[in-house]
């Protein structure tokens, strides 16, 4: 089978992650869908690194993981502090910045 299929799989996973971000209301689930999108991108990177025979793709995937970890830390801290004040974990409840 053509290793290109990994790319298609990555595209599908990314799409599903985007769908989750747009559909779900719980902040944690949205965050997890974002993680899914990041992982799908990582898969694509690794596939490309295999395609080109260079390890640069893996390095980038590595850095993506680092940044994703940092982002998860901060993002969850934000969710917790929002939850403490508002007692709600729904992203729709943080809607005061409106007309």
């Amino acid at each position: 089978m053509n290793p290109d299929n990994y790319l298609y799989l990555s595209a599908i996973l990314f799409t599903l992650g985007a769908l989750g971000v747009l559909i779900r209301r719980n902040a944690i689930v949205v965050f997890m869908c974002i993680e899914l999108m990041l992982n799908a991108a990582n898969l694509a990177f690794v596939t490309f690194s295999r395609m080109h025979g260079a390890l640069d793709g893996q390095i980038i995937a590595f850095f993506t993981m680092v940044v994703a970890a940092a982002e998860v830390v901060v993002g969850l801290a934000i969710i917790i502090s929002v939850f403490r004040t508002r007692r709600s974990a729904s992203v729709d409840d943080a809607n005061l910045l409106k007309y």
Binding site: Q58, M65, A69, L76, A89
Partner: peptide
């Protein structure tokens, strides 16, 4: 990408998802 695979399990699944679950416990 052997190293990356291990890191995926250790860091991502192990640490990041645990973070998620801790927060889930607190609020979710």
């Amino acid at each position: 990408a052997v190293f990356l695979g291990v890191v995926q399990i250790v860091v991502y699944t192990g640490a990041v998802m645990m973070l998620f679950l801790f927060v889930l416990m607190l609020i979710g």
